[in-house]
Simulated scan of single mutants.
Amino acid sequence: MRLKGLLCKIVILGTGLLTSGASVADTQVNIVGLFSNKAVLIINGGKPKTLSVGQASDGVKLIAADSQAATLQVEGSIKRLSMGQAASVMGKSSSGSSSAVLYADAQGHFVSDCQINGASLKFILDTGATTVAMNSGDAKFANIDYKRGEPVQVSTANGIVTAYRVTIANLKIGGITLSQVDASVLEGGSPSVVLLGMSALNRLDMKREDIALTLTKKY
C-alpha cells in the first residue's frame, strides 16, 4: 500500500456542486480585497463588489472583516475566508446528479471539507494514495474504531509506518455520498488532513477546467 503527500499545511478553497447540462443552485464567492469592516468580493464570476459589515448582495452577507479575513453568510452558511480564497455553497442540480467542484490553491492542491460518518473534516485530493487515509485523531472524531482493523505496513513520505485497514460507512463531499469506502488509519497526527485516495476516487469521474475540478459520482 502506498500513501503520498502527507501535508502539514493546506489552504481551504471550498466546494460546490456542478452538473453538466443542468442548472445548479450554487453561490460562488472570491475574496479580492480586505479592509477594516469592508471586503471586496466577486460573486458568481461577476464584477467586484465592496460590502461593508451588515450589507448583503446576491445571497452573500458580510458579517465581519479585517485585513486578515472576512466572515460571510452565504445562503445561510457561515464562511471565513482570507485574501485570494474562494467558497462555493452547494445546491442540488435539477437532474439530481451527485457532483461537487473543488478549486485548486496556489500550489495546485485540491482541498476542501467532507463529512465522514457525519463528522466534518478537512481533506486533500491525493491520487497517489491507495485508499482514503487519515490520522488516528480524525478517525476517533469520526467514530471509527480503527484498532479493530487489520494492521498493515504502509509506505509514506515519512517512511514505513503502521496503519489499520478500516471501512468508512459514509463519506460525503458536497452532493456526493459514498458508502463502504476502504480507508487506512495511521497512528498519530499524520496526515494532518484526510487524504482522499483512490478507494474513493475510483468511484468518481473527474473533469478539470482551469482551477476547477468537477467530481461526479459513478456508483
Rank of each mutant, 00 (worst) to 15 (best):
S94R: 11
F110D: 07
Q85M: 07
G84V: 11
V89N: 11
K47H: 13
S94N: 15
V74Y: 00
V60W: 01
V111S: 06
S94Y: 12
N44A: 02
Q73N: 12
S98Y: 11
Q68P: 01
M90R: 08
N30R: 09
V29A: 01
L62S: 03
A69L: 08
G45P: 13
V111G: 14
S36C: 09
A86I: 07
G33P: 00
R80F: 04
S77R: 13
I31S: 02
V101G: 03
S93L: 05
A87I: 00
G46A: 10
F35G: 04
G84W: 12
R80K: 15
L72W: 07
A87Y: 05
L102Q: 08
M90C: 13
S82F: 00
L41T: 03
H109Y: 12
K61C: 06
L34H: 01
L34V: 02
V74C: 13
S98K: 13
F35T: 00
R80E: 13
K38Q: 05
A39Q: 03
G46Y: 10
L34T: 11
V111D: 08
M90G: 09
D58F: 12
Q28Y: 14
V53D: 07
D105H: 10
A69R: 02
D26N: 09
A86P: 00
I31R: 02
F110I: 04
Q28W: 14
V53E: 14
I63R: 09
A70I: 04
V89C: 06
L34W: 05
S36G: 05
L62R: 01
S88Q: 15
D26Y: 15
K47Q: 09
T27L: 00
I78T: 14
G84F: 03
D58S: 11
G59V: 06
G108V: 03
F110L: 09
N37V: 01
K38T: 02
A39L: 01
G91L: 04
A69S: 09
A65L: 02
M83I: 00
V101L: 12
I63V: 15
T27Y: 04
N44W: 05
V32G: 01
M83S: 01
Q73G: 14
I43G: 14
S94P: 01
H109T: 15
S77M: 14
D26K: 09
A100V: 08
V111I: 15
V89F: 06
S82A: 09
S94T: 15
V74R: 07
A69W: 02
I42G: 12
V60S: 05
K38P: 00
S88T: 15
A39M: 03
S36K: 05
S93R: 03
Q73R: 12
Q55Y: 13
D105F: 10
V60E: 05
A70W: 00
A106L: 07
K38Y: 10
Y103V: 14
K61D: 01
N44T: 10
A64T: 06
F110S: 07
V40R: 09
S98W: 15
V40A: 02
K79D: 05
V29H: 11
S99W: 08
I31E: 04
V89I: 15
F35S: 04
A70C: 07
I78Y: 10
I63E: 08
L41E: 00
M83T: 00
N44M: 08
I78R: 11
S82R: 12
L72A: 05
G76K: 11
A39V: 10
A64G: 00
A56G: 10
A69E: 03
S99G: 13
D26P: 00
S95I: 07
G33M: 03
F35R: 04
S98A: 09
A69I: 06
